[in-house]
Nucleic acid binder design. Structure first.
Length: 166
DNA sequence: TCCAATATTATGC
DNA sequence: GCATAATATTGGA
């Protein structure tokens, strides 16, 4: 497998990092986290990667400003397990401003008692914000957790006018 | 193959 | 309300 391509996305909230493979968008990192390795020596950038990056940038900025994104680049989930793909697909289907409980997601994938596993799958989500893992709340209305830091989850939810318990 | 960990939830006190 | 068990999935020993 060829080395991944990492490109910065500048937003009012800071510089995110987008990671691409030959299949599509593979991951997003929050500003300062820099989990992915930066490649400042960008070789010839494939045309489609540029196009993906453009879409990803617009989508990210839209979400950060509280608006739904128009389009999304193809997502590379080839390394994910089938269960994780199911969970993330459910998350993508959650409309802006709506939330779902971990157990609710579990029900929608036909495994109501897999709420715990759903939490794990959310934590394993490599593409936060775009795959709206922040719209998953606990059953009692509390925030669950968030891989990139709960502060981001709070900020995103407030931006979507979602109320939650603390 | 088994064991421990996890961004939960339901139950009993 | 708080402590405890149960549940599905995953990753490492």
């Amino acid at each position: 497998m060829k080395p991944d391509i990492v490109l910065p996305i500048s937003t009012p909230e800071g510089d995110f990092w987008a990671r691409y493979t030959e299949n599509g968008l593979a991951g997003i990192d929050f500003p300062g986290r820099r989990r992915a390795v930066r490649s400042h020596s960008t070789p010839a950038l494939p045309k489609r990667v540029k196009q993906w990056h453009l879409q990803a940038t617009q989508a990210l900025k839209s979400v950060l400003s509280g608006r739904p994104f128009k389009s999304l680049p193809p997502l590379d989930w080839t390394e994910a397990t089938p269960f994780q793909q199911k969970v993330w697909r459910v998350m993508l289907s959650i409309p802006m401003g709506k939330t779902l409980a971990y157990g609710g997601v579990a029900s929608r994938i036909g495994n109501p008692s897999a709420c715990r596993a759903v939490g794990s799958a959310c934590g394993a989500n490599p593409i936060p914000v775009l795959v709206p893992c922040h719209r998953i709340l606990a059953g009692n209305g509390g925030l669950g957790g968030f891989s990139g830091g709960l502060q981001w989850k709070r900020r995103l939810l407030e931006r979507e006018k979602v109320s939650f318990r603390e």
